[in-house]
Design a protein around this nucleic acid. Structure first.
Ligand SMILES: [Mn+2]
Ligand SMILES: [Mn+2]
Ligand SMILES: [Zn+2]
Ligand SMILES: [Zn+2]
Lengths: 125, 125
DNA sequence: TAGCTTAATGCAACAATGTTGCAAAAGTAA
DNA sequence: TTACTTTTGCAACATTGTTGCATTAAGCTA
């Protein structure tokens, strides 16, 4: 039986992501927590929070990996929203209300989606 | 005036990508060309082909960068199709016919899109 | 064809990001 | 507190991509 332990670093990183209006990268988290723990530990905490369904990973169009809080992912991740990536301020935002629609022609089996739009966010327009 | 030179390596890599049914990563290109040129040269050729509008970059959901041929991008890139990423065979395919629709809050200015679905491709279903 | 200009290449060195193994530290239940 | 197990720190490594610079070679012209 593998139990989950709530450590200081894990709690702090989870709250940091949950309270952030934009998705955060590993580097941004490391800067924000300022020596709270080792950088390897941050990677492992992010992995654990993702598995637990508390945060989700967002791979930006420029390849930068960021993390954002989940709102209703208890058992497994179920995201069908769009992400917006600002080309000016580099922010990545979850647009939870925006559900894209599409129609696949062939015999593809879809299990996940990752839709990202880039341009200028409201602050940078 | 900066002119463009067609070298053996550039031509071969462009044809490799153009004739491939799936998007190719830098590593896959390096393996396929088998010592044709240095790995740095491959990066620079991919950059050049992208600027020239002959290929386009696809950042997969797992962060792996791949390249696929462009069909009608002379002046600048204009892609509005979906990419499909197979979780089993790891292939990334351009679904040129599939155009997703969505409605954004009007405060956002969109200039690019990157939509990727993952699951099982027809061969792996 | 030979020579000239400069785009393209090879190579080394570096940077950023992420992973793994293992011993030490810390969380949790008894 | 003790015992058990998860979590952490650290070092070492892997992958991917970038940069500077000397050398090579593509394409133009005579
Ligand atoms: Mn999101
Ligand atoms: Mn494509
Ligand atoms: Zn912005
Ligand atoms: Zn497949």
């Amino acid at each position: 039986m593998k139990s989950v332990r709530n450590t200081t670093a894990k709690t702090e990183i989870q709250e940091l992501i949950a309270n952030s209006p934009v998705a955060l990268s590993h580097t941004e988290i490391q800067s924000a927590t300022n020596g709270l723990c080792d950088r390897v530990t941050i990677y492992r905490i992010l992995e654990r929070l993702t598995v637990e369904g508390l945060i989700h990973k967002v791979v930006n169009v420029d390849g930068v990996v960021k993390y954002a809080g989940c709102h209703s992912c208890s058992e497994k991740h179920n995201h069908n929203h769009i992400h917006f990536s600002c080309q000016k301020c580099k922010s990545v935002t979850c647009l939870e209300d925006v559900e894209p629609s599409y129609k696949l022609p062939k015999k593809y089996t879809v299990s996940e989606m990752n839709f990202t739009l880039s341009g200028l966010c409201p602050q940078c327009s």
